[in-house]
Amino acid sequence: MISQQSWADARRLWDFQQMGHEVRPCSVAIGLGSHDLGVADTTAALYRDGMAPLIVFTGATSRTTRDRMPRGEAEHYRERALELGVPADAILVEPNARNTGENITFSRALLADQGVVVSSVLLVCKPYEERRAYATARKLWPDVEWVCASAPMSFAEYIASIGDERLVVDMLVGAQQRLMIYPDEGFMIRQEIPADVETAYRHLVAGGFTSRLVPTVAASDWKTETWHS
């Protein structure tokens, strides 16, 4: 059972991950591969709404997707988008990326190879990873404008759609940890972490929601002053 305190802490992390960007038309939409086919649904809906003339789906497989998406996350996303009416010639597939940094760098290279001029990108991801994806994209491809989008769902609605509440909370904690430690590794831009978000993260780690933490970084190694600089 997940305690009421843990639910409150998880909702705080969920709220912090939401960038609140106003979605507008962009040069291309990049759908970040994951276990969640809802990202493909959202990307397809944005395409149909005229928010991007071209889609890149990016992603290989991971431990959470190798059984459910054996042909690779990007390919399963493409198949889903085709089912939803997106034409095949509006979709590019990047099948090799295995983390968010590779999603961005490999997609950028693919678009360059295809001669696509990009000034803005609609970055579509899971709702609880908007800020993480944005911070990574801004670091690795700083000369374009980034607009984040995800399924317009509440925390409770998203939990119900995935069907695994523990997995979602673990993923939230992992996304938050990366926001805290990856700027020092050069993987993301640095963002201010509000005190209540930091406290919520600490509570959840202490409560055992640790399966998605970077394993080489112990909870005791936190350096709050560098996170906020």
Rank of each mutant, 00 (worst) to 15 (best):
M1P: 07
S3T: 10
W7P: 06
A10H: 05
R12H: 11
D15W: 11
E22K: 14
R24F: 11
P25M: 08
A29N: 01
I30V: 04
G31H: 00
G31Y: 03
S34D: 03
L37T: 02
D41W: 11
T43Y: 02
A45D: 13
L46I: 05
Y47K: 06
P53S: 10
L54E: 07
L54K: 00
V56W: 03
S62M: 04
S62P: 00
T65V: 01
D67T: 14
G72I: 00
E73K: 01
A74E: 04
H76Q: 09
H76Y: 00
R78D: 04
A81C: 08
A88F: 01
P95A: 02
A97D: 06
R98W: 09
N99E: 11
T100A: 03
E102Y: 06
F106V: 06
R108M: 04
V124L: 05
V124F: 02
K126H: 04
E130I: 09
Y134P: 04
A135S: 11
A137I: 03
A137C: 07
L140R: 07
V144W: 04
S150P: 06
S150N: 05
P152A: 06
M153K: 13
A156N: 13
E157R: 09
S161T: 10
I162L: 09
R166I: 13
R166K: 14
M171C: 14
L172Y: 02
L172E: 05
V173F: 01
G174T: 02
A175K: 01
L179T: 03
I189N: 05
R190H: 11
Q191N: 13
P194Q: 07
A195I: 13
A195G: 13
D196V: 09
E198N: 14
Y201Q: 04
Y201D: 05
A206Y: 09
S211G: 13
R212C: 13
T216I: 14
V217Y: 10
A219Q: 12
T224Y: 12
T226D: 15
T226E: 15
T226L: 15
S229W: 15
